[in-house]
Design a binder for these strands. Structure first.
Length: 858
RNA sequence: GCCCGCUUGGCGGAAUUGGCAGACGCAACGGACUUAAAAUCCGUUUCCUCCGGGAGUGGGGGUUCGAGUCCCCCAGCGGGCACCA
């Protein structure tokens, strides 16, 4: 009895695939295409189990679709710009490029050891000038079209990473990478006009029917559409108007104040002549945006002394406050407050002694009761109702009042219905070295001048130092000093680089023509795109996926692409988890340091007891990581892949266990013994019996074989990989049983073995090739077609029906499929268990569901 | 606070979408082989039981001949958003 030699086998078959160029993809309009893409990795150093899961999932699909006859594109590349390279440079004195390319080499080797069916000739790295020059070209195109622009703005400044972050990258007031508390700063920044596509990005979500509902919801919330109205208030004694956005224009007659953001231009203007106000504003901007800061912060206002004229009430002036809770970057940065029907406005009004006028009467309440009751004491009424105290709106419902108010405002020229989005423009400036340079030049006389197309790419200088904090590009002695392309005078290069999310917003398109002299070749992109199946972690549900959807739209507008939605199918995988271990002093331990063989976990070296903690997502900080390379060296890639796909549904978290890996390894060896070492006549490979000719045991086996084909195929189509593995094991059990008894012919056995090998192929490609060869084939399994289930074997001629009495199972009956109701009924009533349960009573009713169940009701 | 999801044996999970709950695997236990171990093979394994049965899919209620699946209420766990006007 031998063990399967995975080491030699995996090396040999990987070489065979490479030698025959099996997975190279070319445009072929005659064949249906299938583009499978897993989110490309950041080259951090070594692959981790999350990568193994992600790329195994994609590879199973890629191999399955190839076998199904699709022209499959399955590429790989590197999301290679980013801060860790700079941190490594700071810590180890290396160059970010060297560090990155070194990591890529390691991780490429590791990924190749997994046996992925990837077209490596299309490999790209976003840090390569051959990639980012095209990104620069597109940026210039967007700049010309007004899609990219520069403006002074309040930004999220990460004081640890010394850079600006996008709103999406600030989580609970902290930098998504550094975890540092974010400060507000005003800087000139480059933006991409994603808000121009807010409506399209929102509306198109409905059409993404192969996306998880959860992700669509998250994007919907993020875009945050609000329907309401803009209202312009004349400011008493000034020429300018104050524009506010509200969703409750129906409550305008209940308004008792206006409030503007501390960052509002009007506030700034007033502060110039008012030191007290300037002090208040400064205080507000010191307050963080963290959840904690917000919850504990008092609602505070500063009375500017100005008044806003109510558009419909002659002589009513609403005092204008500067208030710390009004955000400049939502709506217009100004609001009107209606205390009776908004909790926050009510709190504010109580604090500053402003009038509270109810204008909505709840259903079924009398005006007297409501006005005297607790309705507007300390709790604002935000529900539906009927308008009161509101002149021409009186008696209307909230909805009707909104419509009427919008009409009246428009007639006055004082406002109109409006829609506001929570989504803000995408700030892409980063004050970092290791990113794509923004290809513009600042000229004192010409202003912002694009780098001429012929001068692209603007490459990063190699000779940079990281000894001081801040942006090395800015400190470089010569790099930024260039002459203005327009006037020839002294200019200065833009030293900001692009957010790395720009790099990953179009890489899926670049894979279609990775070496082309233009960002994309339309004919190739039109053939391959959209990505049919995109696979990655849920953590990208908003950022990367929203940016990519926007970028595709921008590229369509600029003529680079023909489709607005880059990913027609999306699958979000769960994380890989592992138990956590700590020693007596509470120090985290690696699983490889823990001896689990005894009754209690002990430290391998010291023999001291180890505390086992709950299973969590693998992370370096808790040390609950298992190195994929170790697993592949110990058990082989096929075992790692099989374990990844077994048991846990792919969308859920997967618990990595040594025992589970052992189980997968046992299965490989079982297959090897069953098929690889079974002597079969090597003649007539693939010689299946004609359907309907077999009988007895052979027929049973053939049915099992074809049922397995049918179900595994169905499971694969539905991402039911754990179910598919279960079916494969069932078929293995069946074939093993019958092989042991010699009850079926060599032909049927061969059909069973060949089918099983084809079914396991996408999961365990190396051993499948080895077994395919053992079955006497010269060609590669990778080039074989997926098996087809013969409908003749799927039909069942005998079925087993459950028989219930009052919904309780009392026995089963075996009948010919499609038996008449009367026959099923008679057979059921004759069952001893049924007779006993009836105890002489007459059934009141007998329900027969053909070929399923009989329920006798008494 | 608002929105969403999940809850099935000791464990991961399955259940043709309202029709025989626990497939497949892990772990455990028993047996065979072995001088012994590993490996392998064969069994048992939801719980209770007076061995007739009875109970059972987080808890409570409902619809139905029939509910893990549908509806209502509650609990626990997880996720997203949140000073959004």
């Amino acid at each position: 009895m031998s063990r399967y030699n995975f080491k030699d086998s995996e090396r040999a078959w990987q070489a065979a695939w490479q030698e025959r160029n099996c997975f190279a993809a070319d445009v072929d309009p005659a064949r249906p295409k299938y583009y499978v893409l897993e989110m490309f990795p950041y080259p951090s150093g070594r692959i981790h189990m999350g990568h193994v899961r992600n790329y195994t999932l994609g590879d199973v699909i890629a191999r399955y679709k190839r076998a199904r006859g699709y022209n499959v594109l399955h590429p790989m590349g590197w999301d290679a710009f980013g801060l860790p390279a700079e941190n490594a440079a700071i810590e180890r004195g290396t160059n970010p490029a060297d560090w990155t390319y070194g990591n890529i080499a390691t991780m490429r080797r590791q990924l190749q050891s997994m046996g992925l069916s990837i077209d490596w000739s299309r490999e790209i790295a976003t840090c390569h000038p051959g990639y980012y020059r095209h990104q620069q070209a597109m940026f210039l195109h967007f700049l010309k079209d007004g899609l990219a622009y520069r403006r002074e703005s309040w930004v999220n400044w990460d004081p640890v990473d010394n850079t600006v972050l996008a709103n999406e990258q600030v989580i609970d007031g902290r930098g998504w990478r550094s975890g540092a508390l974010i400060e507000r700063r005003k800087l000139s920044q480059w933006f991409l006009r994603i808000t121009a596509d807010a409506e399209s990005l929102l509306d198109a979500l409905a059409g993404l029917d192969r996306w998880p509902e959860r992700v669509r919801l998250m994007q919907q919330n993020w875009i945050g559409r609000s329907e309401g109205a803009r209202i312009r208030f004349a400011v008493d004694g000034r020429d300018d108007a104050l524009e506010v956005f509200t969703t409750r224009h129906d409550t305008l007659f209940g308004a008792s104040f206006c409030a503007i953001s501390p960052n509002h231009p009007l506030a700034g203007a007033l502060a110039e002549g008012d030191p007290a106000l300037a002090g208040f504003i400064a205080e507000c901007s010191r307050l963080g945006t963290s959840e904690e800061a917000i919850e504990t912060a008092e609602k505070r206002g500063f009375d500017t002394g100005l008044g806003a004229r109510h558009p419909f009430v002659e002589g009513r002036l609403l005092p204008i406050y500067v208030a710390n809770f009004v955000l400049m970057d939502y709506g217009t940065g100004a609001i009107f407050g209606c205390p009776a029907h908004d909790q926050r406005d009510l709190d504010f009004a109580r604090k500053y002694g402003l009038p509270v006028t109810p204008v909505i009467l709840p259903e079924g309440t009398s005006a007297e009761a409501f006005l005297q009751g607790p309705g507007v004491g300390s709790e604002a009424y935000v529900g539906p109702g009927t308008l009161i105290n509101s002149a021409f709106l009186d008696g209307m419902s909230v909805g009707a009042a909104k419509a009427e108010m919008a009409k009246r405002l428009a007639a006055l020229g004082a406002g109109e219905a409006a829609v506001t989005y929570r989504l803000r423009d995408w700030g892409i400036s980063r004050q970092r070295y290791w990113g794509c340079p923004i290809p513009v030049i600042h000229c004192p006389s010409c202003g912002i001048v694009p780098v001429p197309e012929a001068d692209l790419p603007v490459t990063l200088p190699d000779d940079v130092s990281f000894e001081e904090p801040g942006n090395p590009l800015d400190r470089h002695p010569t790099w930024k000093h260039v002459s203005c392309p327009r006037c020839g005078g002294d200019g200065r290069r833009e030293t900001d680089t692009m957010d790395t999310f720009v790099d990953s917003s179009w890489y899926y398109a670049r894979y279609c023509s990775p070496r082309a002299d233009a960002p994309v070749v339309r004919a190739e992109a039109d053939y391959w795109l959209p990505v049919d199946q995109y696979i990655g972690g849920i953590e990208h549900a908003i950022l990367h996926l929203l940016y990519s959807r926007f970028f595709a739209r921008a590229m369509v507008r600029a003529g680079y692409l023909g489709i607005e939605e880059p990913f027609s199918g999306l699958f979000t995988q769960g994380m890989v988890c592992h138990e956590t271990y700590r020693d007596e002093r509470g120090k985290w331990l690696f699983p490889s340091e823990v001896d689990m063989s005894g009754a209690e976990a002990r430290h391998l070296e010291t023999g001291r007891p180890v505390t086992i903690g709950r299973s969590e997502s693998m992370s370096k900080s808790k040390r609950n990581v298992v190195d994929p390379e170790t697993i592949i060296e110990t058990y082989g890639a096929d075992t790692a892949r099989l374990f990844m796909m077994s048991d846990s549904p792919p969308e859920r978290d997967l618990e990595w266990t040594e025992a589970g890996v052992e189980g997968a390894w046992r299965y490989l060896n079982r297959l090897w013994r069953l098929i690889g070492e079974n002597e079969l006549p090597l003649t007539a490979p693939g010689g299946a019996n004609g359907s309907g000719q077999a009988d007895g045991a052979a027929l049973d086996v053939l049915r099992e074989i074809h049922r397995a084909i049918d179900r595994v195929s169905d499971d694969l189509e539905k991402f039911g990989f754990n179910r598919a593995v279960a079916r494969m094991r069932e078929l293995t059990n069946t074939l093993a049983d019958f092989t042991a008894t010699d009850a079926v012919s060599a032909e049927v056995r061969r059909e069973g073995f060949e089918t099983l090998v084809k079914l396991v192929g996408p999961f365990m490609p190396h051993i499948a090739e080895a077994l395919w060869q053992r079955l006497g084939h010269d060609g590669l399994l990778a080039d074989e077609a997926w098996p087809e289930a013969d409908p003749a074997y799927l039909a069942q001629d005998t079925v087993t029906l459950g028989v219930q009495v009052n919904g309780k199972l009392r026995g089963t009956i075996a009948l010919a499929a499609g038996s008449a109701e009367a026959e099923s009924r008679a057979a059921a009533l004759a069952l001893p268990g049924v007779v006993a349960a009836l105890a002489g009573r007459e059934p009141r009713k007998v329900i027969v569901v053909p070929d399923r169940i009989v329920n006798v009701v008494v």
